[in-house]
Write a protein that binds this DNA or RNA. Structure first.
Length: 580
RNA sequence: AGGGCGGUGGCCAAGCGGUAAGGCACAGGUCUUUGGAACCUGCAUGCGUAGGUUCGAAUCCUACCCGCCCUGCCA
């Protein structure tokens, strides 16, 4: 069941490496439909898709799914894809968002070349289309107020009734619609409606509004217009104008498809095919621009790029790679069934990528000092450390070792439980890339009882972490030389919500009450190896045994700041849980 | 006088009348200078339910049940 994966694709300006993910489900109902269209020569065998965001917020992982579907399919069938801003509502749209969206789509690894469109650039054509429908007696100017219109529309189970303005003459409608455009009527006083069927069981067909009067400044066209087309009168025609063949969208628009087709057929213009798929839902978070906007605007997070957010900007800052997001989207598949993807699926995708590609480095997040009593005072050795055991070409680097080092506080226990393989009194462990050390005793703070120093001895014969006598140690610890350590701030993230389905768990609609108060933990006294000193923002590392981290944009020459992207899988934590 | 769309293991998802792919998760095990990774093994006599057609049904038919979406001059 392999559809053609063109060997010549992606030869353009994609800077990201596009690995073929062999977990990709290479068949789904959309691809099947497209293959049928190619086989039947509908659209002359062309495949041309589009991604149509409204510039009213930032893109999130749900948009990434839509982008990967639309753009990924176009690439796989040697087709084209457009980026189109669906900007027919001046009230919510801003240039800031179009810039952010373009940045995020590029970052994801897609290049729409010169095919960047704005629905608002089609306003003049759309206006002409509207006139054409009036002339064909398929549209009329309606003076009903919003409340009246709602009443006339009927309900889910009862038919609506015709507007008293439904049978105005073509001439009157033309005059009135021209007047609407020329600003002769106040906002909201009239609309242009499609004349379809007020008794249709599909509410979208009960004479939907095509144009409303709205004196609002459009971020792109200023005050040129005081009437704006609605989504329904804009989307299909934009697809048509752009030559799109397959208009892939959310299942929520299934009910709109008859209207999408009606406008195109009535207008007698080129008619693309709309196909719908289920939107992404993720556990322990909320998706949806409105909700994300609330979190940002009410200050529950620090901006659209807060690393806890499922926005692409936030995920980028968190340390996610574009590849990992694309692979995630491929792995979860496409269908029309409601879905709730476990956040672990996303974590798997980033670990999978970073494990293969992120350089290893040592960093101690919660340090405790270890003094090696028999190590010569003042001596410093530069030890070899491999940069990535998963990558032969990653090379090695030198790391300094000395008499005083830091290790992770939780890597030592005075009274260790079963299966604790780390440092404890009398026990020998390996310091990664360095030596075997044995714990001799500990020094505690007289008042608090907290361990302040651990005294050890090392075996000089185990340089590099090997011993010739075949002696084996159970544990291997990461460490940083105290004298050479660089201080850093490390930000640890937990899920934004405490509920698996915050939107459904609430009795009412108060998903906000499930915000996790501990979603951000800041560690201020972390010690990282000196090679990290000049690491640029967004560079990613594996902190050995601790997880994947990336340099945050808050980093300054005085202070290194890291974000934990995701911890390593931790089977010790599981054992501990089992022991309790 | 409601309409539309869905229901295959814990979470996704193939399947398209020939005897339930794959991924994540989970459970064992091997290996290991990351308790990581990798590797091996296990994990639906079952496809919303009940009937029917058929040599044979997740796939076809009938009825029923459940879930989601739709009553903006948002998209």
């Amino acid at each position: 069941m392999n559809h053609q994966k063109s060997g010549s694709k992606n030869t353009k300006s994609n800077t990201n490496t596009r690995e073929n993910d062999n977990n990709t489900s290479d068949t789904n109902f959309i691809r099947q439909a497209i293959e049928e269209d190619i086989a039947s020569n509908r659209f002359d065998g062309r495949v041309h898709t589009r991604f149509p965001p409204e510039p009213s917020g930032y893109l999130h992982i749900g948009h990434a799914k839509a982008i990967c579907i639309s753009f990924g399919i176009a690439e796989d069938y040697d087709g084209l894809y457009n980026l189109r801003f669906d900007d027919s509502n001046p009230i919510t749209e801003e240039s800031e968002y179009v810039e952010a969206i373009k940045r995020d789509v590029h970052w994801l690894g897609f290049d729409w070349e010169e095919r960047e469109f704005y629905a608002s650039d089609f306003f003049e054509t759309l206006y002409e289309y509207a006139v054409k429908l009036i002339e064909k007696e398929k549209a009329y100017v309606c003076d009903l107020t919003p409340d009246e219109m709602r009443t006339y529309r009927g309900t889910l189970v009862t038919p609506g009734k015709d507007s008293p303005y439904r049978n105005r003459s073509v001439e009157e409608n033309l005059t009135l619609f021209g007047g609407m455009r020329n600003g002769e009527f106040p906002d909201g006083s009239r609309t242009l409606r499609a004349k379809i069927d007020m008794s249709s069981p599909n509410l979208n067909m009960r004479d939907p509004v095509m144009y409303r009067i709205l004196r609002a400044h459009h971020y792109r066209h200023g005050d040129n217009w005081c009437i704006y087309p609605t989504y329904d009168f804009t989307h299909g025609q934009s697809d048509s104008i752009e030559g799109v063949t397959h208009s892939l969208c959310d299942v929520q628009f299934e009910d709109h498809r008859p209207l999408y087709d009606w406008f195109l057929e009535s207008l007698e213009i080129y008619q693309p095919r709309q196909i719908e798929f289920a939107r992404l839902n993720l556990t322990y978070t909320v998706l949806g621009k409105r909700k994300l906007k609330v979190l940002v605007e009410e200050g529950h997070v620090n901006g659209w790029d807060d690393p806890r957010l499922p926005t692409l900007a936030g995920m980028r800052r968190r340390g996610y790679t574009p590849e990992s997001i694309r692979n995630f989207c491929n792995r979860i598949g496409v269908s029309k069934a409601d879905n709730l993807i476990e956040i672990g699926q996303l974590e798997y995708s980033i670990r999978d990528d970073l494990n293969r590609n992120a350089p290893r480095v040592m960093a101690v997040l919660n340090p405790v000092k270890v003094i090696i009593d028999n190590y010569p005072e003042g001596q410093v050795e530069m030890l070899d450390a491999d940069n990535n055991p998963e990558d032969e070409n990653a090379g090695t680097r030198k790391i300094p070792f000395s008499k005083e080092i830091y290790i992770e506080r939780e890597d030592f226990m005075e009274d260790p439980p079963r299966k604790f393989y780390r440092l404890a009194p009398g026990r020998e462990v390996r310091l990664k890339h360095a030596y075997y050390i044995t714990c001799e005793n500990v020094v505690k703070d007289e008042n608090t009882g907290e361990i302040v120093e651990i005294h050890c001895t090392y075996d000089p014969e185990t340089r590099g972490g090997w011993s010739d006598d075949g002696r084996r140690v159970q544990g291997t610890l990461h460490w940083v030389s105290a004298e050479h350590a660089v201080n850093a701030e490390v930000r640890l993230y937990d899920s934004l919500f405490t509920e698996r389905e915050p939107e459904n768990a609430a009795e009412g609609a108060d998903w906000m009450k499930f915000l996790n108060p501990d979603s951000l933990e800041i560690l201020n006294n972390c010690k990282v190896e000196p090679s990290l000193l000049d690491a640029p923002p967004e560079s990613r590392y594996q902190f050995l045994r601790m997880g994947y981290f990336c340099v945050d944009s808050d980093t300054t020459p005085e202070k290194l700041v890291f974000n934990r992207t995701v911890p390593l899988r931790d089977s010790w934590a599981k054992i501990q849980k089992g022991q309790k």
